[in-house]
């Protein structure tokens, strides 16, 4: 076990735990945001730099600070490590910088993007970004491509988190898409317009933190905050069959994996569950899905399900009182 102190809160964690995981064990405001790290995907993380933290003391044995900010998702804790996240102004400044870089070439097309309302980049920019843009040049754009019948790749929105590539590498037996070119013009693409046909390819949609990979069967059907998420399950011979169904009225508009508070799925689900089972009779309904109380998704539907004592003011947004909105 190793003792680690993050923003003055000390916790004991198993050896080999990363700083990010330790912060998630503490929970709340000390948790750094993560755009590319994904617990279930090996070798993920380290690319986006949003989770940078300051290591003020390396360990009990070697108390020297680390010279540069480190990616908390890829740095394991040492016994006696002291970490600063929200209590370090320079980390807050660095993070605002990273958010600016990620938004530099990202289109401002949230009003027509299916991901809006459950987009991690939206959340990140609200919580850690600055107002306005200082970038006055043309943003880079790419053509949309279909990868398979059910998935659309809108590369212009991609932040190159590599999660979808890792899904293809680790969940499917044949990878036909990957990262092409170099530097600023790097792009996720297929090798000569090839369809991704694999039972688990749909998980690329779930792991995508932005609207770069979207479910074509849900495209433009509704906004996520007009739909009502319900947990459901079915007997499936390919996956656990545990999903979230997104209802509008009586219709199931889409099926996704069940996501935790960090947007990570509990289980990867198969394409049959995701794309082919869109009738209530296909499923055993368990009840309303647990959705982060800060999410725009619950603003329309499930607010009453949250016990009042659990409703708190968002720590990162001083002056904004969310309780009022939820109660009204």
């Amino acid at each position: 076990m190793a003792k680690v102190t993050i923003d003055d809160i000390t916790i004991e964690v198993p050896d080999g735990t990363t700083i990010l995981q330790a912060a998630r064990m503490i929970g709340g405001h000390v948790v750094p945001p993560a755009m590319c790290y994904y617990t279930k995907l090996k070798t993920s993380g380290g690319y986006c730099r949003t989770c940078l933290v300051k290591v003020e003391q390396g360990s009990e044995k070697d108390p020297r600070p680390m010279p540069k900010p480190v990616a908390s998702c890829r740095t394991t804790v040492m016994d006696g490590m002291v970490v600063r996240n929200t209590t370090s102004p320079e980390i807050q400044e660095a993070r605002a910088g990273v958010v600016e870089f990620l938004l530099l070439n990202h289109p401002l097309d949230c009003p027509i993007c299916d991901q809006a309302g459950e987009c991690h980049l939206q959340d990140l920019s609200y919580e850690h970004g600055k107002e306005g843009t200082r970038f006055e040049f043309e943003k880079r754009t790419f053509d949309k491509i279909d990868i398979g019948e059910k998935i659309q790749l809108h590369m212009t929105r991609c932040i190159l988190c590599y999660r979808c590539v890792k899904v293809a590498d680790q969940l499917t037996d044949e990878r036909v898409h990957g990262v092409m070119n170099r530097g600023e013009v790097s792009e996720i693409s297929t090798y000569i317009e090839k369809a991704i046909e694999n039972d688990f390819s749909g998980n690329m949609i779930d792991v995508c933190p932005v609207g770069a990979l979207t479910d074509k069967t849900f495209r433009f059907k509704s906004r996520v905050w007009y739909t009502k998420p319900m947990y459901a399950h079915r007997d499936c011979d390919k996956c656990s069959g545990k999903t979230t169904l997104w209802y509008q009225g009586e219709d199931v508009l889409r099926v996704t994996g069940r996501k935790d508070v960090y947007g990570e799925v509990e289980d990867f689900i198969c394409n049959t569950c995701r794309f082919d089972k869109k009738l209530t009779k296909d499923w055993v309904i368990e009840g309303p899905a647990e959705i982060d109380r800060h999410s725009v998704i619950i603003q329309n539907h499930t607010e009453k399900l949250i016990p009042k004592e659990q409703v708190q003011i968002l720590p990162n947004l001083p002056g904004v009182d969310f309780t009022k909105k939820i109660e009204s």
Binding site: G46, R49, F101, I159, G183, E184, S186
Partner: peptide, 21 residues
């Protein structure tokens, strides 16, 4: 540096091009 950035991490991928522009 803009030309040679590998594109893996965001500050370098986006920042080098911005500075050049």
């Amino acid at each position: 540096y803009h030309h040679e950035s590998c594109g893996q991490c965001s500050p370098c991928r986006e920042g080098t091009g911005w500075m050049e522009k």
